Simulated scan of single mutants.
Amino acid sequence: MQRHHRYYDLLLAAFVVVLLCSNFIGAGKVATLDLPIFGTVIFGAGILFFPIAYFFGDIMTEVYGYAHDRRAVWMGFAALAFAALMAQVVIALPVAPGSYMAGYQSGLETVFGNSWRIALGSMIAFWCGSLSNSYVMAKMKILTQGRHLWTRTIGSTAVGELVDSSLFYMIAFYGIWSTSEIIQVALAQYVLKTLWEVLATPMTYAVVGFLKKKENEDYYDTHTNFTPFKIKV
């Protein structure tokens, strides 16, 4: 009989919210930041929040196992697909007369007109990256016999973010941004998101410790079917 987990649904909901907001609100804006050693760094604004999704993914894999994180990834995939469809339908609807609505329509097209590419890029990149992250973390947990959590969270994120960053910006913005800008932003994205995971390590330890105690769960994926094409846990 499948166990009931008190906090998994909350983590799942938070995961999907972060994924949607970081991709549709922040992904399209390129920002700059002046750093002492690196100089001016160009990055996608969504990077400030998107790594939280990987934070939740690491926690779900560590506590509940690969299959629970795989289900969360598929839920996020479905949410992104619906949001992209909704954006295109809203943009395509005839605009009511008036200068206000004309300006509003222009703003919608600017913000969400490329949403289908952002959603497609995000779905492909995150699906591949997140499942790679979860797989590496689950396998490393077995290899390390559950010790040294920080090696798993940072190591798996380095792999997952490499896959994610390599795919997302090329799919979402090729032909819209210059190739050099895509490469620069993708590289900054990878470095900053991996660094974010390093800085979040104390918080990861605290949340994982709390959940393992409250849920009485510390899952090892010893006999897990790692196929990505399943939703059932």
Rank of each mutant, 00 (worst) to 15 (best):
L19K: 02
C128N: 03
I47W: 02
M86P: 06
L108S: 08
N225E: 14
F55K: 04
G129Q: 07
N23R: 07
V16I: 13
V73D: 01
T157I: 08
S134E: 00
K139Q: 13
M170I: 15
E161V: 12
Y54I: 00
T222R: 07
L143A: 15
L35Y: 11
V63F: 04
M170T: 13
V41H: 02
H68Q: 09
I52D: 01
H5A: 00
L120S: 08
S115C: 02
L143N: 09
I183K: 00
T144M: 11
R117S: 00
Q88F: 03
E109W: 09
E62R: 03
G28T: 05
V89C: 12
S22C: 07
A102R: 10
L195I: 15
A96W: 11
Y190Q: 04
A206N: 06
V95C: 14
R117Q: 09
D221N: 09
L143I: 10
V90Q: 11
V73C: 07
Y104W: 15
V159F: 13
K230C: 10
G39E: 08
V63L: 12
Q88N: 04
I183V: 14
L20G: 09
H223Y: 06
A92M: 15
F43N: 03
P94K: 15
Y219A: 09
E215Y: 11
D34S: 09
L143W: 09
D221Q: 08
P51F: 05
G121S: 08
S132T: 14
N133W: 02
Y205P: 04
T224K: 07
L199F: 13
L85S: 07
S130P: 01
V191K: 14
L35D: 08
F210D: 02
E217S: 07
L131Y: 03
F82H: 00
L48F: 12
L33F: 11
W196M: 03
F112E: 06
L167A: 08
